[in-house]
Design a protein around this nucleic acid. Sequence first.
DNA 1: AGCTGTTATGTTTACGTAAACATCCGGTGG
DNA 2: CCACCGGATGTTTACGTAAACATAACAGCT
Lengths: 369, 369
Amino acid sequence: METVDDAAVNPGGPAAATAGDGRGTAAPAPRRRTRATASMADVARLAGVSAQTVSRVSNGYPGVTEETRRQVLAAMKELGYRPNSAARALKRGEFRTIGVITFSLSTTGNVRTLEAIANSAAREGYAVTLLPVAVPTQDEVRGAFTRLEELAVDAVIVIMEVHLLDAATVQLPPHVQVVVVDSDAGDRYTVVDTDQHGGTRAAVRHLLDLGHRTVWHLAGPGDSFAAQRRTDAWRAALTEAGRELPPLVRGDWSAESGYRAGLELAVREDCTAVFAANDQMALGLLRALHEHGRRVPEDVSVVGFDDIPEASSFLPPLTTLHQDFAEVGRLCVQAVLRKMRQEGPERGTTLVPARLVLRESTAPPPSGR
Amino acid sequence: METVDDAAVNPGGPAAATAGDGRGTAAPAPRRRTRATASMADVARLAGVSAQTVSRVSNGYPGVTEETRRQVLAAMKELGYRPNSAARALKRGEFRTIGVITFSLSTTGNVRTLEAIANSAAREGYAVTLLPVAVPTQDEVRGAFTRLEELAVDAVIVIMEVHLLDAATVQLPPHVQVVVVDSDAGDRYTVVDTDQHGGTRAAVRHLLDLGHRTVWHLAGPGDSFAAQRRTDAWRAALTEAGRELPPLVRGDWSAESGYRAGLELAVREDCTAVFAANDQMALGLLRALHEHGRRVPEDVSVVGFDDIPEASSFLPPLTTLHQDFAEVGRLCVQAVLRKMRQEGPERGTTLVPARLVLRESTAPPPSGR
DNA sequence: AGCTGTTATGTTTACGTAAACATCCGGTGG
DNA sequence: CCACCGGATGTTTACGTAAACATAACAGCT
């Protein structure tokens, strides 16, 4: 068992580690440790070739005999050589790293998108660096010159409305490509997002088709563009269908806020259908309705947005709009890579459709109301 | 509006670029385009000092006149200078970056921990790179030498049981410090974790104190050490109290699995108290119990683990163990930095207590049973 | 044989930074 | 008045890599 672990942590073999470790202090000659890593020069020396040839092998370039390649690979293995990515980045002028900026990881959507981005990026040979934004006490010293924007990234994906980004006093380095999620800034940036509009329309249509006279809306916070877009689309869909526009009820994405909003809605007898801007708020709404004895879906129908994994376990299982975060993340990476290679357009919006998942939280209104 | 955005994207302002441009092209030598970013040499030239002095200012080193410093800072600003982190990393031999390895971001705990790590790291001047593990199709070419382990990180925090890490064939570079979450490998690694044992004991005690004869356990997947530890602690607490040990019911962390397990438990009349290994499974359990007409907490008491934000909006609001993920993340970063500075011990486990949050899902058993 | 083109390999150089060392300066104490 | 000190600044060098250029070896052709 421990052999496996040793191997994972120190592929170079246990011998080296032990020697340098505790016993090292006992040794008389304190030559300042074995060099941490072997360089190309070391490999070249051992293999009897030039450093450049090692470089070629390392990068899989052509023009190396199979024979030579084998020798170099053997030398690499023996020395436990691994390329120094700092030197590589310096030479190539790129880091092979994408930065992801987001305010918090507290919303499902952000997290799922981030995960998809990380996976897609890895597949393309890129790493992902997380850039937490607006740490309040950044006046830590570290020299009077603390701009944390010496980011080791080639491109940035922003998972937040760009206006928030501006407000967060984040200074993006020039010449860094940007792709944005959750924004309408398609005229200024490259934007990838879920089709909030289409999804919302599907939700509203579904409820109206069931016979509901109109649909109430439990909106997300005003500073989220996704929330704003869903609200707009809800309004448009109702208006288009010639239905009455109920007053807007607003939450902050949290289940708790959904509960508070739900307390208001629960007492309105004329409220038979609610479209919640996300599943968490729908959860809180369900609780409020339940506490007030309004049954879902018999008395009130509820539709959410996101299709979080838990949605199918709500009481009752929630009808909601499934967002394909994986696809959004994938497209973000593709777009940003394309921009880096100057292949793609500078701006424009790509939308990923949302899919309505029917579960048990919707039904026709009571007595055909 | 666009001024704001311009500023964010190109903090140097347009003037600098124009100036550097015009003069450059006016010179007879047609050097290929203006360099994307200004280097120390450029700043030094403009400020009329040596590059070394720029370096000193940039790093906040002493030995620079206030006068000179001002000049250098002005030149930096004019050129929109920002340090090249690749060069810096190469020179210093460190990246100021911590890698975080985790299987997926689908569990609340991992995500919250990651977020805390990112914030703590940022506060210490470190960036966080996400390392997705075991991308199946990594046989993409990129040379025969595709080891993705040329990681640009100084240290690694592993959010998974180390055995899984081994299985994932991740080869950590030597000389990279490691801190592990969710493991019992304190004898081989530095481990930081929530006090699963103490938390579980508190949950079981709470239920027994309410008068329940014994406590059932809805366990997490066997390959999670956190799950395993909670199960062990549950067993220990019951044994210690001299109570009967009900059969174990197992889920996979998901609400859906909690629901399935709940279907079994719901039909057992003798089951009056359940300790679920996480809140999501508790949610599914609540649904199953509800569907079978077993009221919570009147007929069955339920305790969860994690205290996800939604827990207070469950039906009924869930009594659960609050995990201080922020603290876990903070301690991880501290530990890993200490190890890098060779200040801390090589191994050992640090536990962060969990706190029982009482809500409405627990009550004495029906008819004092 | 002599030339040309191709392939394999080596040499030089530069990427931007910061440690180590060198220099310059004004001031202080003998 | 000079030797010396210490603070401010400049110069040299190396970090590890890979592009650009240089060379060598050899095959194919006239």
